[in-house]
Design a protein around this nucleic acid. Sequence first.
DNA 1: GTTAGCAGTCGAGGGTTAGGAGTGCCAAAT
DNA 2: ATTTGGCACTCCTAACCCTCGACTGCTAAC
Lengths: 337, 337
Amino acid sequence: MNLSIRKQKILCLLVARYIETAEPVSSGDIKNDYGEEISSATIRSELAALEKLGYLVQPHVSAGRIPTAKAYKLFVETIPTDGALVPQTVDLKTYLDNKMDDVADVIRSTAQVLSDTTNYTSVIVVKNVGNVRVKDIKLVDIGGDKALVIIITDSGILKDCIIDLPQNIGEGYLKTASDLLNRMFGGMTVDEIRAKMNSVDDELNAYKDILDQIIASLERYDGGDARVFVEGTSKLLDYPEYNGEVDNMRGVLSLLEHKEALTDMVSDTDLEFNFRIGKEDGIEHGSLVSATYRINGKQEVHAGVIGPERMDYKKVVGVLQYLEMTIKSILDDKESK
Amino acid sequence: MNLSIRKQKILCLLVARYIETAEPVSSGDIKNDYGEEISSATIRSELAALEKLGYLVQPHVSAGRIPTAKAYKLFVETIPTDGALVPQTVDLKTYLDNKMDDVADVIRSTAQVLSDTTNYTSVIVVKNVGNVRVKDIKLVDIGGDKALVIIITDSGILKDCIIDLPQNIGEGYLKTASDLLNRMFGGMTVDEIRAKMNSVDDELNAYKDILDQIIASLERYDGGDARVFVEGTSKLLDYPEYNGEVDNMRGVLSLLEHKEALTDMVSDTDLEFNFRIGKEDGIEHGSLVSATYRINGKQEVHAGVIGPERMDYKKVVGVLQYLEMTIKSILDDKESK
DNA sequence: GTTAGCAGTCGAGGGTTAGGAGTGCCAAAT
DNA sequence: ATTTGGCACTCCTAACCCTCGACTGCTAAC
């Protein structure tokens, strides 16, 4: 069921205007924006038709129309996703370059920039994807019968695994153990390691204990131990849809607190851009636009922007594209360094 | 300038009632709560006096009174801070015990529990305090001309420092370097290390590069690289002070986003309990109650609760005490294990 | 199919009013 | 000297009504 060209044009004009003003749009408004001469009566009949098709609603009979989620969804399809940059924003690159020390810092800064340039709440999720392959395993004695396990994988370094050692270990225990671990598991994925574990090996028995701990940790990492950063929550208050009716805010705010739900939302797509608009898409009284950047084949970065349904999708898409270019170019610099 | 017993009693009754109902309290209300027989006219004259002293305000002339920040401050002094437990809450201990794997997880869970049991937004800050003393330094080759530095200190393990190595290093470079580092700096505080650096040593020159990187990282850690967790933001919406006037929320919400400001607020006191009430204390339209637990002499945990000025201080103090006991007992278990 | 014209609808905003909650004050009582 | 009952006064709240005007839907003519 396709819309006529004119209906599409009217609908887009209406959406664009509503995004700007947050007030019901009348047939006269559209007439003004339309360009060519056209009577408001004609527009009215088109609007009535669009309403019947579910693209518009009227708050009350003597008001203009506002778009439904269905209308926004159609609108975002018209946004070009490959060139509409916004060069007038902050120079993201130099901003990020200055802070390239700690990964967490970088991501948080990025989220901050994203929130500041769009003036919406931003969320960034970094996630492992695909099977992590173990490259090297090191054991470091840290005293107190504990050891720190450092696992170098093809998608990064895992260094949050602390294991308990058996009571009285000998001198070369850790060395022997790590040699063994590397010999047996080097180059394997977690799945493969798990499989090999089942065909239990005598040689391993002495190290069964610590091995279990290491595998548990690896699985957590492999399973996508996503890191989530949310910035600019208070920007929600800038928009009348949350400023007037506070209850509208509850849905969005509690979504921002449920990091797992957020993660799922930004990452359950293969598309480069993902639009989630309205309740049916899991966001009551709000929208989420997210972009997925694949960093090195093994890590995904999802950058998202959350705001009212009446979000400035065009601007957001622009910023997200600009962000992608920036991230890519920074990583290239790092690479060649 | 001390208040008469009766004024104090009336003030406390008024505050308690206002905390419960969020509505201006009249002389008749107090009369009902008072216990002994007393006329409302008497109470009225006391209320007028209290208003003159700055403890109360009237929204308008024919309404009851509501407490000022000054009144709340006096009120919280009457709360016993050493026994008023709230045993009917969730069994914090078993809840936390189950999740004792990852430190970040534990803290986040704790914040969650704190928020859920109080029904306010919670914040937990973990901070190093005093001078960190280096016990052991390890260097681990992680490929790509980089090494991971693991520094074991008396207040925990620092494992977020990745350094760039010089281009072409020899076989035993890392071993030699870490031996040297330990010999020179083992047992010293960061301040001492920095001092020693100045009296530059020939032996060091070969390692000057990596040393600088390590010290920078140590300083960040030593300077109190606080970890901050905020949970239950959306609970703010449960309270009419934020539900009606959204602008009241802006101050609190943006405070929750500024982790450094939050950190300062919960930690700039030596008291066990810290009450910050109202704008003069840095929280517009809100209050913060925080407790400080010293974990092992080297780390401080600050647990805080943020809500409207009209917060249920008694309940919050109870929960925070209960939390302290729980944390202590969990750590004791760990200790003896 | 498009347009002008017109009647109809309904919300927003302003003014008015009645009701009631709560105070301040005063004079009498303790 | 404090406490108390009584009473006049204030002023918010909610309800109601009204008007104004912004839009629409419809119809008949183009």
